[in-house]
Design a protein around this nucleic acid. Structure first.
Length: 694
DNA sequence: GAGCACTGC
């Protein structure tokens, strides 16, 4: 086996030339694999069989000589588990330095860390560790390979902006272009200017390599020359590593389909009739589509005898109860064919074994943000080519498979975009901008992003932060409010509400409200307990209901039966407890006194107003259908039917968020007294041309 | 009287 030079200890001598693409260094340092004991050889053999293994030397050479290395690797190449080990073996973790590898998702972080610890024959949490929110499985001065979510690494930058303890940072799954990944990439490029010795590895599954390379390659000339003299190339290197998937035959429809749910169902039945055994994975857009398709297949099986036995149809989406989600992993009964009808969750977040056929509707639900109205919408939109490829690849994991695309080849070739629009260009930017401000990046409009958000979105975010008193006239963080808000890992409006609760003496209650609001929903299915709640609870709004649920949950001894009886999601409540603990710690750190207001709900509502004053709505005097108008934009909005204030229709209310379907619905509303608005945000309400508060 | 693509700190 080749021996590797320990970076930073002695200059290497080149033995081979560049022609062959593989270079060896001579030198007396042995590789420092710490694996030992039984089973080591077989694990080592498995490692050597991974496609990425033959690129070991090339990767280490590129990382040594280039500030940034971009690795394009398809699924199954082994890049995520192997490259960090290569780096460690080559000495990048010597001298108290760490190697980091980031992932967009928590589950992936845990899984990869566990796998790497196993391969290295070490206990998880020692040399190999991981950090995700609520869980730090690392040991200072012992852990050298650290896996973490990109969000956690961003948070770490608030304490150590130059990430000084890391020698190499590998950003994995960069093609997904999540908000955190994009911010991280922008910041890492800046860090490189101050720390030329830092190495970056950007790992991506797709074509985007060129755009990424342009991003990291585009620099001011003078710096480039300085560093070229140090022997480090600033122009990124690109290396492709093949995957280990099987061939997937692609089929297209000849004519565009009218109804993709119906078309998907017909295709499933056709596959079942004509194709050899193998499970089917269908990509639709959401719960509605999926439930409809499941029903249609069930109807078909019932009416026509020929399909009868043999089809096991399972829906899959994140809103499904845990137990039902897990059904998709159960082995297919002998003689049966499993059909999984799924959202995008099966495209990225989880891997299903045994899929041979994929049916791709060509659509998914995507978030879009309108900076003019400040509303985020979820809409069904065509997917990208990269997404289509990823979906098709799900058919080739165990043997050659087939993919049926419910769109024409002409459409795929000529009209489908190459990649999805990065999330940062489809989102509200308040959290992201306050984060950059906290890291001392003053010129937000001039920040070098991998993909720049629209100026409108940035200006809107700056306006909101200014109105919250988080930024001052010079767009600098205010002290202490701005710095406090930046410390809290929540939407700035929620953070502001928490900070305001300090002066109202209701921080205990508001922290509970904040924890509940940061969870998707605490209710099981749509039906909440509102029907059983008494008049007193009905009077003020959903936030007060949350406090009652939390109190009831604690009084029941955190019982799952209690949750079940009250239509409350037990897992969600466990999460509320976890978030609440974290918020309590942070609140105390930034000087908030934990205090309960007992049953005085007026101060709770005032604290909510202090954060969410911009979401104030007034009932239209003569509307008989419960129509409200927003104070800021005079938009027509309605109270969501799941709210305790539905049909109660108080004159003045504040909402937490808008969901738009056929109408704009306000979710989680609370009634207020309009006089509180002037107290909470005089600048916001007094400066309006005609004062709407009459 | 409606409904939540997917993540994350």
């Amino acid at each position: 086996m080749a021996q590797f030079w320990k970076p930073g200890t002695e200059k290497p001598r080149l033995v081979d030339d560049e022609e062959g693409g593989v270079l060896f260094f001579s030198g007396g340092f042995s590789s420092s694999s710490s694996s030992s004991g039984y089973g080591y050889a077989s694990i080592e053999k498995q490692r050597q069989r991974l496609p990425v293994y033959k690129y070991r030397t090339a990767i280490l050479y590129l990382v040594e000589t280039h500030a940034t290395t971009i690795i394009v690797g398809e699924t199954g190449s082994g890049k995520t588990t192997q490259i960090p080990q290569f780096l460690k073996e080559a000495g990048w973790a010597s001298g108290g330095r760490l190697i980091a590898c980031t992932q967009p998702r928590r589950l992936a972080v845990q899984a990869v860390a566990a796998r790497v610890a196993e391969e290295m024959g070490v206990k998880l949490g020692e040399e190999v560790g991981y950090t995700i929110r609520f869980e730090d499985v690392t040991k200072p001065d012992v852990t050298v390979l650290k896996f973490l979510t990109d969000g956690v690494l961003l948070r770490e930058m608030m304490d150590d902006p130059l990430l000084t303890k890391y020698s190499v940072i590998m950003v994995d799954e960069a093609h997904e272009r999540s908000i955190s990944t994009d911010i991280l990439l922008g910041l890492l490029k800046k860090v490189q200017k101050r720390r030329p010795e830092l190495r970056l590895i950007i790992s991506s599954a797709t074509i985007e390599a060129k755009a990424m390379s342009d991003f990291f390659g585009k620099r001011k000339k003078r710096r480039e020359l300085e560093n070229e003299e140090n022997g480090i190339q600033l122009e990124p290197a690109i290396l492709s590593v093949e995957g280990r998937g099987f061939n997937v035959q692609i089929n297209y429809v000849e004519e565009p389909v009218q109804d993709y749910v119906q078309a998907a169902v017909s295709t499933v039945l056709l596959i079942h009739e004509r194709e050899p055994p193998g499970d089917i994975l269908v990509f639709l857009t959401g719960q509605d589509d999926i439930d409809a398709a499941v029903q249609l297949i069930a109807d078909e099986v019932q009416t026509s005898k020929k399909h009868s036995p043999g089809l096991v149809v399972l829906p899959l989406y994140s809103g499904l109860p845990r137990a039902e989600q897990e059904l998709v992993f159960s082995p297919t009964p002998r003689g049966k064919r499993k059909v999984i009808i799924s959202t995008n969750i099966a495209e990225t977040s989880l891997t299903l074994e045994g899929i041979v056929y994929v049916v791709d509707s060509g659509f998914s639900k995507q978030k879009f943000y309108n900076p003019i109205t400040d509303v985020e919408n979820l809409v069904v939109a065509p997917i990208s080519k990269a997404s289509a490829k990823q979906r098709a690849g799900r058919a080739g994991r165990v043997r050659p498979g087939k993919c049926y695309r419910l769109y024409a080849e002409e459409y795929f070739l000529n009209h489908m975009s190459n990649e999805a629009i990065p999330e940062i260009q489809r989102s509200n930017l308040v959290s992201c901008i306050i984060h950059l401000k906290a890291l001392g990046i003053d010129n937000i409009l001039g920040f070098d992003w991998p993909a720049s958000p629209s100026p409108e979105a940035m200006i809107r975010a700056l306006e909101v932060l200014y109105s919250l008193g988080v930024l001052d006239d010079d767009a600098k963080l205010t002290s202490p409010t701005g710095f406090q808000v930046a410390e809290i890992p929540l939407d700035p409006m929620i953070s502001k509400m928490i900070i305001a609760s300090n002066q109202f003496g209701c921080s205990e209650e508001i922290i509970t409200v904040a924890a509940v609001l940061s969870i998707q929903s605490i209710w099981i299915s749509g039906r909440g307990i509102q029907k059983e709640s008494d008049e007193a609870k009905l009077r003020f709004g959903d936030h007060v209901t949350f406090l009652n649920v939390y109190k009831g949950f604690l009084q029941s001894g955190k019982s799952s039966q209690w949750c079940h009886k009250n239509y409350v999601n037990y897992h969600a409540m466990r999460k509320v407890l976890e978030v609440r603990e974290q918020l309590k710690r942070i609140a105390q750190r930034i000087g908030i006194v934990l205090k309960s207001c007992e049953s005085d709900m007026q101060v709770v509502r005032k604290a909510v107003t202090a954060g969410f004053f911009a979401n104030t709505c007034r009932l239209e005097e003569y509307s008989h259908n419960g129509m409200y108008k927003t104070i800021r934009g005079s938009q027509e909005v309605y109270i969501h039917p799941s709210s305790v204030l539905f049909r109660v229709n108080p004159k003045w209310i504040i909402y937490n968020s808008l969901v738009s379907t056929d109408r704009q619905y306000m979710r989680n509303v609370i009634s207020i007294d309009p006089s509180w608005l002037l107290e909470a945000a005089p600048h916001f309400y007094l400066l309006q041309q005609s004062n709407p508060l009459h």
